[in-house]
C-alpha cells in the first residue's frame, strides 16, 4: 500500500510556520517514512497529484488567491490542519482589518511616511490577485479539522501532531506546546 500524502501551503503568512516544519530537523525522516509530500513549498510540487490525507495551511486569507488555494486544499485533503496564528485569527496581516481596504492601499502606496512612489500608482496588474475586504481566518472560510496555534507552532507541536495523526494514536499535547506566540 502506498504511503498517505501530505500537502502544505502558506497563504497570507510569513513562512515562519514552514520554517517550523523544517525545524523538525532529523525527525523529518520519521515523518517521511509515514507520508509522502505532495503539493508543498517544501518540495516545490505546484499541483495536487492526488488525494491527500493531511493538508497543513499556514496564513489567513487576504486575497482571492489565498481563498482559492484554501478551497483546493479543502477539496483535496481529508484532514485540514491550520498552522499558526495567521491561519487561526488572521495574525499580523489582520491588523489591517480595522481599516477600510482603500485606506490601507493608500497608506501603503501613497501616503505612508516611507513611501517612495513618484508615479503614485497603486499596483493593479491583472495578474495580481484581488485583495479581500479584510483578512479572514481560515476557519471562517472553509471547514477546518484541527488547529495548531502559535507564532509559529513549535516543531515539537507539529511533529507530535503529525505522528499521532498518522499512527492513529491519541494526541495529548503537553501544556508547553499550546502557545499563541
Amino acid at each position: 500500500m502506498s504511503k498517505p500524502k501530505i500537502a502544505t501551503a502558506s497563504l497570507a503568512g510569513c513562512f515562519g510556520c514552514h520554517m517550523s516544519i523544517l525545524d523538525i530537523d532529523e525527525r523529518i525522516l520519521q515523518v517521511a517514512e509515514l507520508v509522502q509530500f505532495d503539493k508543498s513549498p517544501v518540495d516545490d510540487i505546484k499541483k495536487f497529484t492526488g488525494r491527500c490525507l493531511v493538508g497543513l495551511v499556514e496564513g489567513g486569507c487576504a486575497t482571492e488567491e489565498n481563498v482559492h488555494v484554501l478551497e483546493e486544499f479543502r477539496k483535496h485533503c481529508d484532514i485540514l490542519i491550520l498552522l499558526g496564528d495567521c491561519a487561526t485569527m488572521g495574525g499580523i496581516p489582520a491588523m489591517r482589518n480595522m481599516v477600510p481596504l482603500k485606506e490601507c492601499l493608500e497608506e501603503a502606496y501613497l501616503n505612508g511616511p516611507t513611501v517612495y512612489n513618484p508615479g503614485r500608482v497603486i499596483p493593479n496588474d491583472p495578474e495580481l490577485p484581488l485583495n479581500l475586504d479584510r483578512v479572514y481566518p481560515c476557519h471562517e472560510v472553509v471547514k477546518i479539522d484541527y488547529v495548531l496555534p502559535g507564532c509559529p507552532p513549535s516543531a515539537d507541536t507539529i511533529f507530535q501532531t503529525l505522528v499521532a495523526l498518522l499512527t492513529g494514536k491519541p494526541l495529548d499535547l503537553p501544556y508547553e506546546l499550546i502557545k499563541y506566540d
Binding site: E64, V67, L105, L130, L132, D133, R134
Partner: peptide, 8 residues
C-alpha cells in the same frame, strides 16, 4: 469579500 477590491 471582493466587492471593495473590485471597485477599487
Amino acid at each position: 469579500a471582493l466587492a471593495d477590491s473590485e471597485s477599487i
